[in-house]
Amino acid sequence: MNLKISIITVCWNSAATIEKTIQSVASQTYGNIEYIIVDGKSKDTTLDIVKKYPDTVTNWVSEQDKGLYDAMNKGIKMATGDYICIVNADDTFADDTVIQRIAEFLQTNPVDASIGDIVQHKEDGKIIREYGAKKWSPEKLKIGFMPPHPAIFFKKQLFDRLGYYAIDFKIAADYELIIRYFLKNSISWKYSGITTHKMLVGGVSSSGWKSYKKVSEEIKKALRMNDVVFSPFRIDTRVVWKMLDFI
């Protein structure tokens, strides 16, 4: 069976970066890819760039949405693949063979989700962080640890069965969905060991103390929503536990 992989990019006024993202998808060696772009009614030249790649972009839509996670849900509902992954509009795949290797891994290991690694880099391309999931387990969600969200390839059927991203979260809807899937519903998963994405630093959840506090509050909200017993103190001080785990 030749797995179909659906890739979703959500964008808004992303003309400065989206072409690299599209080219990263176009260069993948794997053949059975569906690429969906969900645009939030950009006012720059984002759509002009999207329209340059009809052989790569399978389907796209440009309309108002209720935020990032609402747009992700739209893309997932449009998808027809066996597995789904997200590549943000300022990120790229780590190399041209990522989807080929992931598809081979998932055919050998037909789990509900595979988890990989990512690297984060500056605009000049310098890698500043490797964000790995080798030591991760669902129990670590209780102390503020989640695997890199873009490096997760989800079986499409999961969304129909267990629900989509909760759009009342500003930053941590991905955390809530991962709690719901991996901890509450114990989906099957396996670590692939594959570095899937290169991410440009400076996203919505990665800048400053104010953002850290907001993420902490949303993580606690996500855990409560899913009836998970946890220590609020450990969530608030998760950066310490992450450093100790790394050491």
Rank of each mutant, 00 (worst) to 15 (best):
A103P: 08
A103R: 02
E104K: 14
E104L: 14
L106Y: 11
Q107D: 05
Q107E: 14
N109M: 08
N109T: 08
P110V: 04
P110C: 03
P110I: 07
V111Q: 12
V111T: 12
V111P: 08
D112F: 13
D112H: 13
D112S: 13
D112E: 12
A113Q: 02
S114H: 06
G116S: 04
G116D: 01
D117L: 04
D117Q: 01
D117G: 01
I118A: 11
I118K: 11
V119E: 14
V119Y: 11
Q120W: 14
Q120M: 15
Q120E: 13
Q120T: 06
Q120R: 15
H121V: 12
H121L: 14
D124Y: 05
K126D: 02
K126R: 03
R129N: 10
R129K: 14
R129H: 11
R129Q: 12
R129V: 12
E130R: 13
E130Q: 07
E130M: 03
A133K: 00
A133E: 01
A133H: 03
K134G: 00
K134N: 04
K135S: 02
K135H: 04
W136I: 06
W136T: 03
P138G: 06
E139I: 07
L141N: 07
K142Q: 13
K142F: 10
I143A: 08
I143V: 12
G144Y: 09
G144D: 08
F145C: 11
P147A: 01
H149F: 11
H149A: 06
A151M: 10
A151W: 11
I152V: 12
I152T: 03
K155W: 07
K155P: 01
K156M: 11
Q157I: 15
Q157N: 12
L158N: 05
L158Y: 04
L158A: 01
F159A: 02
D160H: 07
D160G: 12
D160P: 00
L162F: 15
L162C: 06
I167S: 08
D168T: 11
F169A: 03
K170M: 13
I171R: 15
A173F: 06
A173T: 04
D174G: 01
Y175A: 07
E176C: 02
E176G: 03
I178K: 02
I178E: 05
I178H: 01
I179T: 15
I179A: 14
R180W: 08
Y181Q: 10
F182I: 06
F182A: 07
F182H: 09
L183V: 07
L183E: 13
L183K: 15
K184I: 14
N185A: 10
N185R: 14
N185L: 15
N185Y: 15
S188L: 09
S188D: 08
W189K: 05
W189R: 09
K190Q: 06
K190F: 02
Y191T: 00
Y191C: 00
S192R: 05
S192A: 03
S192Y: 06
G193I: 05
T195V: 15
T196D: 00
T196F: 07
T196P: 06
H197S: 00
K198A: 05
G202T: 09
